[in-house]
């Protein structure tokens, strides 16, 4: 557990697992051969891409201490999330409405960002 924030350190989320050494590398990955990105770069890339989806919803995600993420609304409300598994429940709590990837309106807005 992190002594600062009380967040339990848990299993890596499936999106962060080493499905292939060519996708993720790093000390917890499958070794240096074929490494495409360091874990740090992979996290930065994940944040950048997630923000393309969050922007039309009025949310922004930032990386925090290389171990978690902070999700913020434009009015400054925020939640700490440990991985993508915690992202969407937090987003819906902050927005007070569902975040539906099948919503054609949301898909159109993502395409315009």
């Amino acid at each position: 557990m992190c002594g600062l924030c009380g967040v339990f350190g848990g299993e890596r989320h499936w999106t962060e697992r080493a499905a292939s050494p060519a996708i993720f590398g790093g000390p917890d990955g499958d070794g240096p051969e074929g490494r495409r990105m360091t874990p740090a770069r992979e996290r930065q890339e994940r944040v950048r891409l997630v923000n393309r989806v969050l922007d039309p919803l009025g949310l922004v995600l930032v990386e925090w201490a290389a171990s978690s993420y902070v999700l913020r609304t434009k009015t400054g409300r925020s939640e700490v999330v440990s991985d993508l598994g915690g992202l969407w429940p937090a987003a819906e709590r902050l927005l007070g409405r569902p975040c539906d990837p099948l919503d054609p309106g949301l898909l159109a807005r993502i395409a315009r960002t």
Partner: peptide, 14 residues
């Protein structure tokens, strides 16, 4: 893979 993970995670959540 990162794009797929974002999409599939969001789909399964909802």
């Amino acid at each position: 893979w990162t794009v797929f993970g974002i999409w599939f995670g969001m789909l399964l959540h909802r």
